[in-house]
Computed example of a mutant assay.
Amino acid sequence: MSTLVTYFSAEGTTAKVAKEFAEMIGADIFEIVPVEPYTKADIKWTNPLARCNKEQFGKKDVPVQGKIENFEQYDTIYIGFPIWYGAAPRVVNTFCQGYNWTGKKVMAFATSGGSKIGKTAEKLQPYVTGAASIDAKLVSNSYEVKDW
Rank of each mutant, 00 (worst) to 15 (best):
D28T: 08
D28G: 09
D28R: 07
D28V: 06
I29S: 07
I29R: 03
E31Y: 01
E31L: 02
I32M: 00
I32C: 00
V33F: 00
V33H: 00
V33G: 00
V35R: 11
V35I: 11
V35T: 14
E36R: 12
P37D: 10
Y38A: 02
T39H: 08
T39C: 07
K40E: 15
A41G: 07
A41N: 13
A41S: 14
D42A: 08
D42W: 03
D42C: 07
I43A: 06
K44W: 03
K44C: 07
K44A: 13
T46A: 12
N47G: 03
N47Y: 01
N47A: 05
N47T: 04
P48M: 10
L49E: 15
R51A: 08
C52G: 01
N53R: 09
N53L: 03
K54E: 11
K54R: 15
Q56G: 04
F57I: 11
G58M: 04
K59Q: 11
K59H: 10
K59N: 11
K59V: 03
K59S: 09
K60V: 10
V62C: 04
V62Y: 02
V62Q: 06
P63E: 02
P63S: 08
P63W: 02
V64S: 08
V64G: 07
V64T: 09
V64E: 05
Q65F: 03
Q65D: 09
G66H: 08
G66N: 07
E69K: 12
N70G: 05
N70P: 03
N70E: 10
N70F: 01
F71P: 08
F71D: 08
F71G: 07
F71L: 09
E72I: 02
Q73E: 13
Y74D: 13
Y74F: 14
Y74L: 13
D75V: 13
D75M: 14
T76K: 14
